[in-house]
């Protein structure tokens, strides 16, 4: 079969003398080693299947391990050395003092949420508007350039952003605005996160606008829209399901980020009470510039110092599980949004 197909196309080829040799080789291969090929096929199938199973097993394994260790804090399991905690004292309390048996993680949850929302507040609109400009208004070469720059930025390791924040951003904020008092806190962390997630949002928003049929824009213009009316009233609403996906994926990246945030946020588990007690600054300034902590930074900070089976260690695992579930929820949400967007 292969032979017959190859014949007509190579017949007009200038290198005609090469044809018989190819013909020979093909026929030998297809006739003589049928058994071997069958075995190879089966073998390859098994290898691929094994690889797929290993990956699935790893993911399921991580989930099971994380769930077991995460729930260990709330169940009287054999491996536990500390006392069993209640959900309320972990998830509804802001008091974190493991040495005095206090394990409230609410302030870390609030911290994660605050820093993510602050970052999104700037990153979402600016990312989407950048994509609008690049895909709908800028000349073609700029689109290509921008696409490459964004892909490059997405690939930069987060610790690099962290170094930038620690050595450049913190001193700058502190010198410019805070009369040299420390600048670590939500503001610096949100700035770094914003820089990290903008490329993701721009890149995905560009996809969203490029996926729109050109006829939509022409249709709006043909009715007498100006360029901006077409963009605001037709193109952005039409792209909105996919734009929302872009923002939500950026949010997922922000919530899960540990390294860069940990380097600039100040790592103060008791940030809520510190913020309440201090009265020397306006509330918003206090909120932005008090050293704080999030779920991820606390995990990075404390997990290496705790003994397995202790209540402290178990609660940290519960925080890990919480992060896992949040990111999972975000991914499932984007799937849903993506389906809704596919008209």
């Amino acid at each position: 079969m292969l032979m017959l197909k190859a014949m007509p196309s190579t017949a007009g080829d200038p290198a005609r003398d090469a044809v018989p040799a190819t013909k020979m080789r093909l026929s030998i291969h297809s006739e003589g080693s049928r058994g071997l090929r069958f075995l190879l096929d089966r073998g390859a199938h098994s290898v691929f299947l094994a690889c797929a199973l290993v990956v699935v097993a790893l993911i399921v394994g991580i989930l099971v391990f994380l769930s077991l260790r995460g729930f260990a804090a709330f169940l009287p399991l054999a491996g536990n050395t500390g006392r069993t905690l209640s959900f309320a004292e972990v998830f509804l309390s802001t008091e974190w003092a493991p040495s005095s048996d206090k394990f409230g993680i609410l302030s870390f949850m609030a911290g994660s949420l605050s820093v993510t929302m602050l970052a999104l507040l700037v990153a979402a609109p600016s990312g989407i508007l950048t994509a609008v400009f690049v895909t709908l208004l800028a000349p073609g070469w700029m689109k290509t350039l921008m696409r490459q720059v964004m892909d490059l930025l997405v690939g930069i390791p987060s610790v690099v952003y962290g170094i930038f924040g620690l050595t450049f951003l913190l001193p700058l904020i502190s010198a410019k605005w805070l009369k040299d008092s420390p600048a670590a806190g939500f503001f610096a962390a949100a700035c770094i996160l914003m820089v990290m997630i903008v490329p993701t949002i721009v890149s995905l928003s560009m996809d969203a606008f490029e996926a729109l049929p050109r006829t939509l824009d022409e249709g709006a213009l043909a009715l007498g829209s100006t360029r901006w009316q077409s963009i605001w009233r037709v193109l952005i609403p039409a792209a909105s399901p996919r734009l929302l996906t872009a923002v939500v994926l950026g949010m997922g990246r922000a919530i899960g980020e540990a390294m860069a945030v940990q380097m600039v946020i100040g790592n103060n588990p008791a940030w809520l009470s510190l913020m309440r007690e201090a009265t020397d600054r306006a509330p918003l300034i206090r909120f932005l510039f008090t050293p704080a902590a999030t779920l991820t930074t606390e995990l990075v900070q404390e997990l290496p110092n705790t003994a397995a089976g202790s209540a402290w260690n178990n609660v940290l695992f519960a925080m890990g599980l919480l992060l896992f579930l949040m990111t999972m929820g975000i991914i499932l949400a984007t799937r849903r949004l993506g389906q809704r967007g596919a008209v």
Binding site: P213, L216, E218, G219, A222, R233, P237, V343
Partner: peptide, 26 residues
């Protein structure tokens, strides 16, 4: 000009909005 000279395209290109919103867009 485009208000006075309307256009219908080769492929239907309604906006992804309600029927009503499409008609009153202009």
């Amino acid at each position: 000009l485009r208000r006075r000279v309307g256009m219908v395209f080769q492929k239907p290109n309604p906006f992804p909005k309600s029927i009503y919103e499409n008609v009153v867009f202009g």
